[in-house]
Design a binder for these strands. Sequence first.
DNA 1: TATGAATGAGCGTTCATTCAT
DNA 2: TATGAATGAACGCTCATTCAT
Lengths: 224, 224, 224, 224
Amino acid sequence: MGTQERKTREKEARRQLILTAANRMLSEKGFMQMTMEDVAREAELSTGLLYFYFKGKDEILVTLLLNSIQYLNDRLRQVRDQDGVALQEKMKQLEDTFKDLLAFDPSVFHKIIHLHSSRNMEKLSFSLIEEVKEGYRQAFSLMTEIFRKIQDAGIAFSAAPDHYTDFICSIFLGSICHAQCLFLSAGDRDHQQQLLGEAFEIIDKSVSNGASQKDRKKICNYSA
Amino acid sequence: MGTQERKTREKEARRQLILTAANRMLSEKGFMQMTMEDVAREAELSTGLLYFYFKGKDEILVTLLLNSIQYLNDRLRQVRDQDGVALQEKMKQLEDTFKDLLAFDPSVFHKIIHLHSSRNMEKLSFSLIEEVKEGYRQAFSLMTEIFRKIQDAGIAFSAAPDHYTDFICSIFLGSICHAQCLFLSAGDRDHQQQLLGEAFEIIDKSVSNGASQKDRKKICNYSA
Amino acid sequence: MGTQERKTREKEARRQLILTAANRMLSEKGFMQMTMEDVAREAELSTGLLYFYFKGKDEILVTLLLNSIQYLNDRLRQVRDQDGVALQEKMKQLEDTFKDLLAFDPSVFHKIIHLHSSRNMEKLSFSLIEEVKEGYRQAFSLMTEIFRKIQDAGIAFSAAPDHYTDFICSIFLGSICHAQCLFLSAGDRDHQQQLLGEAFEIIDKSVSNGASQKDRKKICNYSA
Amino acid sequence: MGTQERKTREKEARRQLILTAANRMLSEKGFMQMTMEDVAREAELSTGLLYFYFKGKDEILVTLLLNSIQYLNDRLRQVRDQDGVALQEKMKQLEDTFKDLLAFDPSVFHKIIHLHSSRNMEKLSFSLIEEVKEGYRQAFSLMTEIFRKIQDAGIAFSAAPDHYTDFICSIFLGSICHAQCLFLSAGDRDHQQQLLGEAFEIIDKSVSNGASQKDRKKICNYSA
DNA sequence: TATGAATGAGCGTTCATTCAT
DNA sequence: TATGAATGAACGCTCATTCAT
């Protein structure tokens, strides 16, 4: 019935409310400094209610991370499935994907970091950890497929597709981290997007260069 | 006086004892899980004494980080100042520098991460923060100098030297972080060095490619 | 009216449903570990509804205890009123009564214990406490009557009937408690009934012995 | 050195201070209602310090229980080893032992009860649980030895010594529990000692009766 | 210098109870 | 009657830091 449906919707809305509030506090204070009371206050709810919707603090974090992973994978799937585009376009799409992920979740890096902070996973349910693992695997797999497609199109990559996946992942994560170092040393803000952009620029050029040696004609247009 | 000198030396030795112990615990448990009592036990000292040598937990962390930054900068200076080597050699030296940094301090990444964890710097003394900033600046500056030298030697870089600095820093930090993701998703160990190696391989090739088009003769031997 | 009556009946049925569920959870988890949500889930009702039928968690416990007390008193009345049986038979009936009480409510001991746990009675309504008191008094009174009858029949008891009441009550409660100690120390199960049986055996024999000295002829058949 | 020794003594004194405070609060409020802050306040210490001396709330309880068990076993050993006393004396000594245990630790019953409250032992260290088990076993074993000695002396017991052990244990525990029932129903205080006394009186008489039939001469004086 | 006992604020979490619907 | 989301006080426990000796 409509009533039942509305309730379900409202419950989901509450969950989202909490997640949004947690995300705000997470960006503001970091995971360790964020208390459940912070989240409750930000969401204008009682602390107890948080535990009605989530098993605990860690589950909130992981749920948020899973959201971001899903966002990334959705975008990666689009990039993979979109045919008839030029190589540079594919790389540009990848760059935009990561930039948008960063806009979608500015603290995705910190979520990943905390999740891996050894002792924090022990309290998580097995299935939730599995979801994260699966999310990671899908992301890696999708990226590798994309790189393979590019390579199959004749572009001369200097390494195997899965190495490119690792390479791009490292650059994504590293750009965020290095941006913080720059922020500390120079005081500027928001280098993340910029660093990512510059890194992709370097990669793009080197790829074009590499490509040029093999099959320059094939660069512009290839189909899956 | 000799006595005074000996005292100073012994004090410094104690500090090192604590730092070494802290480093061990840091690798073992991570910063949040490491308690001051852990450090004291590992150093076979009392907790109270830690506060005689260091202002607090954070200061220990930052001191350790400064050590690692200094190690890095020393190495970078050597790379910069060593003349008469081929381009590939310079890149290889850079790669080795970072790999050695990782061996020298396996938890350097986590130190950086924690330092930036927003609220953790408030308790630190101004001068200590300045030291870190200065260390960062020097590292960036040294790397940029190195890249500039390479570029000056006629190697066709696809970007400005300081962008390469950011690029390499990102890759260094990102490789460590991504290695953890791989560890979670695949269960393998110790991808850090490997990922870093693969990343440098990709860069090397692209640089060679780029270089080859411009001035292949100049690659092999250049002098500052 | 019939409708009214049905409603009353249904309401009582609901109460019983809750009580039964609570009893199950009580045996399974113990009072402190049993949450109201446990009870609600077990009864397939909502938590809120529990508070329509009962003032709170403690009231459920006490209501269950009252049930068991009533069961005991009903049985004791039967033992008291049944004439023309031998002495040993009376003692056997008493033994069976307690054993059946234990079967009827395996957690009666824990209910009693919790009720007495000092601060737990403060929240209970005056009348409910009075009911428990009255139930206790009736049980003690009934048992004393039974012992008096036995004594009046010429059996040489070594103590006054009310002392025997206390004695038997202590043995009943103590057997349950001691069974738990044995369970902890030896790991065996279900000593309750056995301990109770052994205790009664000891009592029986000593009573027979004592009796034999005075008036053995009167043992076998006496009437109230 | 003297200083070291004094420190050790003072530390032990602190432990005792906490245990004493906990015992007071335990009698006053019961285990569940007693908070660590209560104990700290009563001992005029900070809550944190409690955790320096004890692993947690449960460990305090068990330590107190172990104290009482040790007290009991010491007394039982004395009873067992004292030769050349009459049978009645042995029984009287047993009675006094339990009465003194009750005076030594008025809440020993509640400690036992809580310990057995299923889920509470999970947090305890294995060795501590083993100590309790061993304490129980020793008590049972000592009592059984005592009863065997009495029986060997020619006293006609109506049951095996270990059944008598169970019997006496049940009566001890049951008397305390039943005293609470009486307190609730009648409002009187301190029936514990009295009930225990009455119970022993009943047992004594029945034993004397039983004994008289076999070997009255041996009652008065026997040696191990 | 060195010790380690002492502090105490703070946090994650639980759960009996209430209340809007 | 019935629901179940919402409340919020309470508690056990941790640990960086201090301080008397």
